[in-house]
C-alpha cells in the first residue's frame, strides 16, 4: 500500500464519519428517518470496507475482499431491517 493510498483512505474515512455525524445532527432525520438510517448504515459499510481493503490489506486479496464485503453488507442489511422494524408496526 502506497503512502498516497493511505492518505486518501484516511481523508475518505474522516469525510464519511463527519458526514454521518452531521446527518444525525441535522433535521433531516425527523422528516426522512428511513433514508437517514439507510444513509448512516451505508456510510458505516463503506468505512468498514476501506479499513479492510486499505489498512488490513485486502486490496491484495480480491476474493477475500469480496467475501468480507458480502458479510458486512449482510450485517448492515440485518441492522437496517431491525432498525426499520418499529416503523412498520
Amino acid at each position: 500500500m502506497t503512502e498516497r493510498a493511505l492518505y486518501i483512505a484516511w481523508a475518505t474515512l474522516i469525510a464519511l464519519s463527519l458526514g454521518s455525524t452531521a446527518l444525525a445532527a441535522s433535521g433531516l432525520w425527523v422528516h426522512w428517518p428511513v433514508a437517514s438510517g439507510v444513509a448512516v448504515l451505508v456510510l458505516a459499510w463503506w468505512k468498514a470496507r476501506i479499513i479492510l481493503a486499505r489498512y488490513l490489506g485486502l486490496d491484495a486479496a480480491p476474493a477475500w475482499r469480496r467475501r468480507f464485503d458480502f458479510g458486512l453488507g449482510c450485517l448492515c442489511v440485518l441492522m437496517l431491517g431491525l432498525y426499520l422494524a418499529p416503523l412498520a408496526m
Binding site: L13, S17, S20, T21, L23, A24, W29, P33, S36, G37, V40, L41, L43, A44, K47, A48, I51, L52, Y55, L56, L75, M79, Y83
Partner: peptide, 16 residues
C-alpha cells in the same frame, strides 16, 4: 479496533 468502532458508533450514537 477501528473497524469495530466504525460499526458501533453509528448504531449506538446515530441511528435514531
Amino acid at each position: 479496533v477501528d473497524l469495530v468502532w466504525v460499526l458501533l458508533f453509528p448504531v449506538i450514537y446515530l441511528l435514531r
